[in-house]
Design a protein around this nucleic acid. Structure first.
Lengths: 367, 367
DNA sequence: ACTGGCAGTCGGTAGAATCAAGTGCCAGTT
DNA sequence: AACTGGCACTTGATTCTACCGACTGCCAGT
């Protein structure tokens, strides 16, 4: 009940929200220690923590209050306290120190992004690995959607008699293909002609808005154009499904010690659609962390998710995420996710011509 | 020591290897029961098993012999027996009943392969899921390498000023791409001309054997051709790295109950190269099952791997695999792997023109 | 408002007792 | 000689008890 006015002794933390500064410090100590040791934290330890200059008895009194207000719980009487989801939330919002990535890790990220060479898919895949290696958690990368990309090339390539490959190149560098089985055999010339006509009709338009039907008077073409049209529509549809890259699933087996938890979390991660929705939801709500039940997925209630957007152009579409136990090192996870997401954004903007105002390639990090 | 001559009472199993038929039946019973229950199997239970028409006392005597010969072990005195790797091996070689896939599962496979529509990558990815759903084990699919595929198309597509995408189509339907940053801006006409020249020089040759240098006298081209050549070589190299698709990693958390085991096995599976090598090794040795330490990987010594080749054309290159505990339902795993691998082979041969003699599309299963 | 002191609460561990499963051996039977 | 029933024995698992240690909640004192 007792509400203190902000005590102004010494250089305290900037803002501690609606919590008494000392209690905030106590919560801070409990979270930090518990994250490290996975053992309930007692008043004696907390009393020694910086920012808490009182005896263990006083700490105990505050802990009772913190428990009453839902920030802490006792696993059982006469054990130390552990944070609740609400406790973690407060920690993340008000106490988590700005992103501190070890210099070794910083270098690692730098080296990674200096060396990236391949295509986007490859970069994302490897970024998910990187992220899971920077932290002890499983990583997820969702590729930016091709939203407004336009068609840059359409081509039909003959693979075998009556077997043709439709290859579509988008302005963001993505390539899609579809195999077509035709009713009739076409000569290379016919194929080339057809390719040209398709290109003329489609190049420049967005995939989703591509003309449903390529106009033609040639009586022989419809039987060919029909499967092409179908394939194009299928491609347009499949481009909506963002790719998901998963890194370091084995990290989950480190983070949890109940094998049953590992299983259920893994099996959620196998459903890519769920992962994408989860990350998007969190981002849409303007959050970068979802703790416990804050996202709606029951089986993940013992998990926390850290998300950071990957912005290409001006719409924020992709995302990187980290999945670990609620007992997670949030500062580390946030720092890692932010570094990787911003580096990724930068790289992708550079690569595909959406070059931005002129932020250059300098530090952008901070927290 | 006592070696029996084959008793010929009743319709016994075809061949029991170098083992007394009754002892083989005992081993069979132990393996089957242990796979199901994960509990050491006692002589009383085995005595009731079919093919063992003797008392538990006699079974005990035989079990002593089987243990002496290394087929069984006792976790501790006065517990039942469990099979050794050698025991499983004997079971797989001589006792495992022919592949029995439940009708529900058969239907599932059938439906899957009737519906497959997309591209090869997609099919393989989904096949790995299928396989892990047919069994309670983790599945792995290694895509056939592009070995002898020839180049069918080479094309340069402009993405942005000075940014070009090199797109290469292979005869097996694979598409590779690489982004190039050029020193100079090229007009669409120049790009088209260049594409044509590249195509003329490269189409028809194998990727690996493609001419290292496209001949030209044009003084402006070298600065463009150089990065193209580099990209081509890089593509050729990357095509060696067979893609790995992993299905149902969460199955591992079901199969093992020590979280530490789960972790180490998962982290092996994350190394795609190791997975590929492992599967190839097993296939090269002409095996379809590797139990415990039969493959050389320490961390997988509590695992068994079931492999089946995916043959495209006439060289056997791809593979499907199942990874589970040595305490694995081998008949089921073998059946599932074989069905999927042969269906995959068939589909891929159909799709990419390597149409075979004329085995048709009929049953091919059996065991 | 805070502190030291103290009784009280529980989980965790160690040791003893008991249980049940399953063995190895042996004398007896066919 | 091959097999069987019977039995003593071994040993992990389970249960129970006692006890220790960690931490708390409370209270009287500064």
């Amino acid at each position: 009940m007792s509400t203190r006015t902000r005590a102004s002794k010494g250089p305290q933390r900037a803002s501690t929200g609606e919590l008494d500064p000392r209690r905030a410090a106590i919560l801070d100590a409990v979270v930090t220690e518990y994250v490290g040791t996975a053992t309930p934290v007692g008043s004696a330890y907390v009393a020694k923590a910086p920012g808490v200059n009182v005896s263990s008895a006083t700490v105990r009194a505050d802990m009772v209050a913190l428990e009453r207000d839902g920030y802490l719980v006792q696993p059982h009487t006469s054990a130390g306290r552990i944070p609740t989801d609400k406790g973690y939330r407060f920690f993340v919002d008000h106490l988590a120190p700005a992103g501190v990535l070890g210099t070794a890790q910083r270098q690692r990220v730098k080296r990674f992004f200096d060396r990236v060479h391949g295509e986007m898919e490859d970069m994302l895949e490897r970024a998910s690995r990187l992220l899971s290696e920077l932290t002890p958690y499983a990583a997820v990368v969702v590729s930016p959607s091709h939203g407004s990309a336009t068609i840059r090339s359409v081509q039909l390539v003959s693979l075998a008699p009556r077997l043709v490959l439709l290859v579509v190149v988008l302005s963001d560098g993505a390539v899609e293909k579809r195999t077509l089985e035709l009713d009739q055999e076409l000569t290379d010339e016919e194929l080339a002609g057809l390719s040209g006509r398709l290109a003329a009709a489609l190049v420049g338009s967005e995939l989703a808005k591509a003309p449903a039907r390529v106009p033609t008077e040639d009586p022989v073409l419809p039987t060919v154009l029909e499967p092409v049209g179908r394939a194009l529509r299928e491609i347009a549809r499949s481009e909506q499904n963002d790719e998901v890259y998963m890194g370091g699933p084995s990290r989950l087996a480190e983070a949890f010690d109940a094998v049953e938890t590992v299983r259920s979390v893994l099996s959620i991660l196998e459903q890519q659609l769920v992962v994408v929705t989860l990350l998007r939801d969190v981002l849409d709500r303007g959050l970068s962390v979802a703790i416990g039940t804050e996202h709606g997925y029951e089986p993940l209630s013992s998990c926390a998710v850290v998300v950071a957007p990957v912005k290409v152009g001006d719409n924020e579409t992709g995302a990187v995420g980290l999945l670990g136990p609620t007992r997670m090192n949030y500062p580390q996870a946030l720092a890692a996710a932010h570094v990787v997401s911003s580096e990724l954004s930068e790289r992708m903007n550079e690569a595909y011509g959406h070059r931005r105002s002129d932020k250059g390639r300098g530090r952008r990090g901070g927290h």
